[in-house]
Amino acid sequence: DTAEFERKVRPDDAACSERQASRPEVDRDTIYALASASGRSGVAVVRLSGQQADQALLALQGGSKRSLPAARLAALRRLHHPHSGSLLDHALVVRFPAPASFTGEDVVELHLHGSPAVVRALLGAMAELPGLRMARAGEFARRAFLAGKMDLCQLESTADLLAAETEAQREQAVAMMDGGPSSIYNRWRKELLGCLSSVEAVLDFGEDADLSDSIAVDVRRRASALRQGIQQQLNDGRRGELVRDGVRAVLLGPPNAGKSSILNLLAGRPAAIVASQPGTTRDIVEVPLDLGGLKVIMSDTAGMREGGCEVEEEGIRRAVEAARMADVLL
């Protein structure tokens, strides 16, 4: 039946544990990295994840001089260099013991003063602790995925939310993070598994020809409806892509039609040179805009005409190519 088929193809908790156990040794290292934006700020957050996270915190506190703070309660601690003993900073420390953490591992967050010098000193001190290494790009999220803390849609939505510049991008990323697309895909998967289990039943116990025919008709109907649902989801006019990457709008027309003036008006600054002489704009001038919460990449192009110089002709060629790739032509 469907439950038996799902048991065969869907990894259970034991399979997930086996997948984690088979990770390369380098993936089981305790990792650390700056989790907040780089540069000067009021607060900087450094995150550790792995089996040695608590031991690293003890070493930064001065070994046995201070006990570990209680789980999920912020505590003020003085952080010292593990070898020289010099004071690095006063920090708020929060522990998230496994498995109830972002990565499913022991996690420690250090909330420091957001000075580049403070962050640099702390990261340098952590590099001298045994069993710790700097995290690779996206490694915390990768460990969260391997631990079953998030699915691929939520993983992608996390990156989209961090990169969101407009309200539409934020809304789309939050909806994905909340499991909207995942629920649709899981429903498709469940329906597909039901069709597959019915086909398996016919193959294994198909002596009754009438029963086989009725099952085949039902599977065909369900598969057709599933295909139609998937096609409808795909035929959304690339809405998700346009929201995430931005709508490419190209200003196209003859010289001195006001294309550069429109671009400067929308940008709120003199992004393109405006002059009465025809052919002033040669290369493409792109300006990212936030129009009503939607990211729009507006491009000013060379005026379309014949008989220009070689440089102007190249500008016109680029304008035609940009128009070919545009989502909107103005």
Rank of each mutant, 00 (worst) to 15 (best):
Q20D: 10
C195T: 14
E321L: 01
V287C: 07
K259F: 00
A302K: 00
R318V: 00
P254H: 05
D1N: 14
S214E: 10
V219T: 14
S260H: 00
Q233S: 15
S38Q: 10
A70E: 15
V119K: 06
S197Q: 05
R305V: 02
V9I: 13
L152S: 10
G124Y: 04
S38R: 10
Q228V: 06
S261Y: 05
L73P: 08
V247L: 11
M134Q: 13
A70G: 12
A3G: 05
V311S: 11
T103I: 05
G124L: 10
D12N: 09
T2H: 09
P69A: 00
S214H: 03
V247C: 11
G179T: 10
R239Y: 02
G148M: 08
S115H: 08
L251H: 09
A3W: 15
R187Q: 07
L161R: 02
K295A: 15
E4H: 14
L263I: 04
P255N: 00
A135I: 06
E105V: 04
D218N: 12
I297H: 09
L234K: 01
V247W: 06
I31G: 04
Y32W: 03
A141D: 12
L291K: 01
R269N: 01
G237I: 05
A71E: 03
Q20W: 13
P116K: 02
A71H: 07
L68Y: 03
Q20S: 06
S299W: 01
D204E: 12
S212W: 05
D218F: 06
S101G: 02
V285N: 11
A326H: 11
R282T: 02
D29F: 08
S212V: 09
E312F: 03
L242A: 03
V285F: 01
R317C: 06
G148V: 10
A35T: 00
L263P: 00
Y32R: 11
A272Q: 01
V43E: 07
L226A: 13
E312P: 13
V274Y: 07
R7F: 11
L234Q: 08
A125V: 09
L289I: 07
L79A: 14
N186Y: 10
K65P: 08
R133N: 03
A121D: 15
V320M: 02
V94D: 03
G308C: 04
D218R: 13
A175F: 15
A225C: 07
T2M: 08
H113Q: 04
M134S: 14
V287W: 09
